[in-house]
């Protein structure tokens, strides 16, 4: 399951009437930034900039966790932890998995927003 629906539950409860706007804002920001982040990570692997890559993976991990994209978060965490040691091919493979995962997350998040 790409998306954990309970991720926002606590916020929703807490934010009350502001919840929808708050969550929509967060989700939209995520949808706007994640593709860029994935693209950037790809470039960073190719350029061999591992420190930057790890940072980017960390950020995407954090954001995926926020929106409840647990599988994506898991992938990003692996990339963050092993970004300095794995070879480029392995990272690229992992990244393309993350891209596929993101596409599912994106669809679900957009469905969620439309509701």
């Amino acid at each position: 399951m790409p998306l954990d629906p309970s991720a926002f539950e606590k916020y929703r409860e807490f934010m009350g009437e502001d919840a929808d706007a708050f969550i929509a804002d967060i989700v939209q920001t995520f949808l706007a930034s994640a593709p860029q982040a994935l693209e950037e990570m790809k470039t960073l692997i190719a350029a061999g900039k591992r420190t930057e890559f790890v940072r980017a993976a960390h950020t995407l991990k954090s954001n995926s966790a926020t929106v409840g994209a647990n599988d994506l978060r898991q992938l990003c965490e692996t990339m963050e932890l092993q970004g300095n040691t794995l070879d480029a091919a392995a990272l690229e493979a992992m990244l393309s998995q993350a891209v596929r995962e993101y596409q599912q997350v994106e669809t679900q998040l957009k469905d969620r927003l439309a509701k």
């Binding site: 916020y11 807490f14 934010m15 502001d18 708050f22 804002d25 967060i26 920001t29 954090s62």
Partner: peptide, 14 residues
């Protein structure tokens, strides 16, 4: 991180 900023600001505002 923009998203984290938004979450923190949102919660604090509430």
């Amino acid at each position: 991180n923009l998203i984290n900023q938004k979450v923190a600001i949102g919660l604090l505002k509430k």
